[in-house]
Amino acid sequence: MNRQRSTFLITVLCFGYAFLYIPIIMVMIYSFNDSRIVSVWGGFSFRWYLALLDNRQIIEAALLSLRIAFISATIATILGTLAGLALTRMGRFRGRILFTGMIVAPLVMPEVITGLSLLLLFVSLQDFIGWPGQRGATTIMIGHITFSMAYVAVIVQSRLMSMDQSLEEAAMDLGGRPFRVTIDITLPIIAPAMLSGWLLAFTLSLDDLVIASFVSGPGASTLPMWIYSKIRLGVTPDINALATIIITIVSIGVVIACWLMLRQEKQRQQDAQLAYKNNL
């Protein structure tokens, strides 16, 4: 009985993982395919990777994506950290719970809605103040900042809540003014959380298609937008190579972010243990 169940479970598990990962692995394998026809194996080669380098459109789209991801992740980290600080350290102010709830709302908001509402915002801004003029890289960046900021805020907020507040009080007691204390004590301690927030924001921006499609203009195509437009004309082998590169970058980012969060969790447990020991 027990044995049967475990074989059943293992089968289901394998099936699930296969479902998740076989397509990705296939893409990665076929990116080294020498053949021009995607579904026929013609030997191992790097030709599609080299072909990518010759394709100016791809290079431009990739560089645009990286630039947008880098800038939007950086700004989102700054704003998200400020939001997290305000929500945890400003004490109880009216509507704090409402604000805390509102910061996580973008996480569950359908991307189509976020994209659409941003587009409407840009269009009406254009009517009223004549900005942003041409939609393109800037508007995509703003769009990415709005939703990835929420992720950063949530990560930073949870770290701040687990941080021993007497560290900040001790610094203030020793003569540090509140702003200095934030710089000297709080930021170094939450830095790993900020870094994992940045990485998350970076990867989210890098693979976003929906919001970018809504708020972009004719001039600017990010990498996912370019791939999507190409794929409608049929899959070419160079797309496999590109996908493999993106998967690698994103995996590295996610693995580092997870590792940082795990370490933070360990730190939190240590803090809790220490606090427990000290309160006996």
Partner: peptide, 10 residues
């Protein structure tokens, strides 16, 4: 100056 119960060493 205060010495905290948790010591609060940075």
């Amino acid at each position: 100056n205060m010495m905290f119960q948790s010591y609060a060493v940075f």
